[in-house]
Design a protein around this nucleic acid. Structure first.
Lengths: 121, 121
DNA sequence: CTCTTGCTTCGATGTCTGTCGATACCGTCC
DNA sequence: GGACGGTATCGACAGACATCGAAGCAAGAG
């Protein structure tokens, strides 16, 4: 039932602040915000995606081409599929340069998730 | 690599630091760590669970009984199912006091997720 | 003890998702 | 041009998941 409305999470630029969701301790999430944030968490809810993401995030220069990170134990189409999901969730951006496609982390979106998880302290 | 076995996620105490996973920028995740973290993110990857979680986190006193938060648009058994998942992921702890069951956030586990998302370039 | 209320567990069901091989696409090099 | 290597899409399928109603349990009231 919930698949009718797909959130448009078209690749935020580096530097934008995602206009979503104060710390969870600040009050309960609206249904819409919950769906947006859940989509982001869902993107990181798979071990393969998490490893791809960490490989990119920890790669020198903050970016990596698919060939650098594809060794995660699944087939190439599956890697591509997962990268697409991360991109659609706004967590990664991609850019083709010549033969290779480079991925990098979208800091603002990750920051939004981290901010949401800040408990008062 | 980091730590050994399935964390006994029964009830981390309030000041514990979960021994898992430095910031993603620090290096790529091991397969085992990726699975552990993915399980936590997966727990928050559902809008209903996210709303339940935020209701508890933002509830006065830091805890809430099921009856306080059950109004999220799904049946009561479904609420219970989701709370169980959050509990199994280590994000919530529960305690029965008389008639009611109280849930509260496990701060250390949430902090571990937040820490992992710190990008601080 | 019996009834009621709050919560959990069980069983069934329809949908979503991770995975693969095959194939199409896109740049580069010869 | 054609061949080739790096990525993306497609189609199929098994396993996982969210959801519900019904039934089970626990604790308090009468």
């Amino acid at each position: 039932m919930s698949n009718s409305e797909v959130v448009e999470l078209s690749a935020p630029r580096d530097g934008d602040v995602v206009p979503c969701c104060p710390p969870i301790t600040a009050g309960e999430l609206s249904r819409a915000d919950a769906e947006k944030m859940a989509a982001m968490f869902k993107a990181l809810s798979d071990p393969v995606r998490l490893r791809l993401f960490s490989k990119i995030a920890s790669h020198p220069g903050g970016e990596a081409c698919v060939c650098d990170i594809a060794d995660v134990g699944v087939s190439q189409p599956t890697v591509s599929h997962h990268l697409k999901k991360l991109r659609e969730a706004g967590l990664l951006t991609s850019e083709r340069r010549g033969t290779w496609v480079y991925y990098r982390v979208a800091p603002s979106v990750v920051a939004a998730m981290a901010a949401m998880l800040e408990l008062r302290g």
